[in-house]
């Protein structure tokens, strides 16, 4: 394996790990279910993709590579579907999303730096 793929793989793993943590921080910080959902989808898509591609670059055999590809395809197919089903169910059961008034913004985090950087 060349140095380039190794470095690329490391970069993807670290970046993916950072996105994972970001997604979960968003899951904690955001004010209501619907906004949290957006934070969760950060980790489901790009973070999963980056980490799995990072692993693919270091796959020792073609079988491992193939399995990682299949896992990625499954995740990319199922996670938006599950997310959509969840959002639809929540909305239909009467859970109201938090929405700002005309032109206003939600000041969701009155204490700066709480749970943040």
């Amino acid at each position: 394996m060349s140095m380039v793929t190794t470095y690329l793989s490391w970069a993807l793993l670290v970046l993916g790990g950072f996105l994972c943590v970001s997604g979960s921080v968003g899951l904690l910080r955001f004010p209501d279910f619907f906004t949290r959902m957006h934070a969760a989808s950060v980790t489901d898509t790009l973070a999963t993709g980056m980490i799995l591609v990072g692993l693919m670059l270091q796959a020792p055999t073609w079988i491992v590579f193939g399995k990682l590809v299949m896992i990625l395809v499954f995740v990319l197919l199922t996670s938006p579907t599950a997310g959509h089903a969840l959002a639809k169910a929540a909305l239909h059961s009467g859970l109201k999303p938090l929405l700002p008034g005309k032109g206003g913004k939600i000041d969701a985090d009155p204490r700066p730096s709480a749970g943040g950087v």
Partner: peptide, 15 residues
């Protein structure tokens, strides 16, 4: 989205 998450002071405009 990631930059929104790490914002020091959360201000959202969900729709």
């Amino acid at each position: 989205v990631v930059s929104t998450i790490w914002q020091g002071h959360l201000q959202l405009q969900p729709a």
